[in-house]
Nucleic acid binder design. Structure first.
Lengths: 212, 212
DNA sequence: CGAGTCTGTCAACAGGGTGTCGACGCAGCG
DNA sequence: CGCTGCGTCGACACCCTGTTGACAGACTCG
């Protein structure tokens, strides 16, 4: 897991060639995934798109899945970074804080729509993708749970089910609702409205009422 | 869409044979899907499991997908029926009513776990499965929205975002959380706790507080 | 400066899946 | 009794994946 960053191919005295082609594959993948589904993009498409033969593709990546994982890693890392930013940034109030956290996570997935949708599709069959994805969710859940507990400790949020259980429900909700909004699924929310609706559910669930 | 029921194969003077084999394929599918993933079950497995050759399988079903749709139709129909029951059944209070509705929908999907997980997997690639699934969700959402509006009209539920938007978020949440609970994904809730946690989110979201 | 080694490349193959075609047997029916 | 059509399957065409083995060019080190 977390291939891409781990693939620090050793000494590269004067061989920019390899990196270029790896890049070309990655770029081709993101482009093609914008046009058709993950299942409909073959290794051959990726190779040809990057100007090489299929066997040569396998020199750079062990599979189509690995390409997606590399792409996904970048998006996931960005989402994590944005969330951290939003959490530490000063906010005028509790409501705005949560709004920014939810929006910060959503933003990278929205702007890399092709990768997001491909990952959601591949997750159904690829254990590796599922692992990365659930790892991200796990972290969001743990952080959310801690934040809810802090609010309860401060006396701002009422008691109720275990904070972690609520965090699980809320984070999975966000994942599913944002996915359906981004993919234009029906039933679904408009992508621009989604964060505000989700925020309402979060606030009411955590604080027992919209205005804590 | 909705193949199975529509496949009322015409006059069958004395040919119970065909129905038996169709049944055998369906049974084999549900059994095999309990053992491995949808992707790992081939048409050949289905055919052999039902005691026929691959080409003969195609006499009964146009594809593996069609078999899953037939299986899914039954589960979906049951979920719809259970929900209708729960809605009309007398309930001691508002909270119990919602609890029974959520639980009623969850139950058939839980007891036909293999089909549920296979459908979730296939939805990623099959437009037909997605259509059936989203059709079910659409109906649940519409009904939920109407129920929320009724509660608002009665003065029991506070105003807020459009009822339909909340209904979309809540129903997708249930779908995703129940799926992860049933599949044993992490992060996830214990299958037995899930309904109660979801109920809390529903009540707080709809009524603004746990106890309306 | 030439032998060795490493990166990069691809034609050809093996294997497994899907869906189709054409032949064939075996009912019931006129 | 011979026709019609359901049910059946062997064999085929096709597409996709991942591997093998041979080979070219460049750097590198004695």
């Amino acid at each position: 897991m977390s291939e891409s960053t781990a693939v620090a191919r050793g000494r590269r005295t004067s061989r920019p060639r390899g990196d270029e082609r790896e890049r070309a594959i990655l770029d081709t993948a993101e482009r093609l995934l914008g046009e058709r589904s993950y299942a409909d993009v073959s290794v051959d498409d990726l190779a040809r798109g990057a100007g090489l033969s299929r066997p040569t593709f396998y020199f750079y990546f062990p599979s189509k899945e690995a390409v997606l994982l590399a792409l996904l890693d970048r998006v996931v890392a960005e989402a994590r970074a944005r969330r951290d930013e939003a959490v530490t940034a000063p906010a005028p109030g509790v409501e705005d804080r949560w709004r920014h956290v939810i929006g910060a996570i959503a933003q990278p997935f929205r702007s890399h729509l092709a990768v997001t949708l491909a990952a959601a599709e591949a997750r159904a069959t690829s254990a590796a993708v599922r692992e990365v994805w659930n790892g991200v969710m796990e972290r969001f859940v743990a952080e959310t749970a801690a934040e809810i507990e802090a609010e309860r400790a401060r006396g701002h949020a009422p008691d109720g089910p275990p904070a972690r259980d609520l965090a699980v429900a809320l984070n999975w909700m966000n994942e599913r609702v944002l996915h359906s909004a981004f993919a234009g699924e029906r039933p679904g929310l408009a992508a621009d409205d989604a964060v505000e609706v989700l925020l309402t559910v979060w606030l009411r669930t955590i604080y027992g009422a919209r205005t804590p």
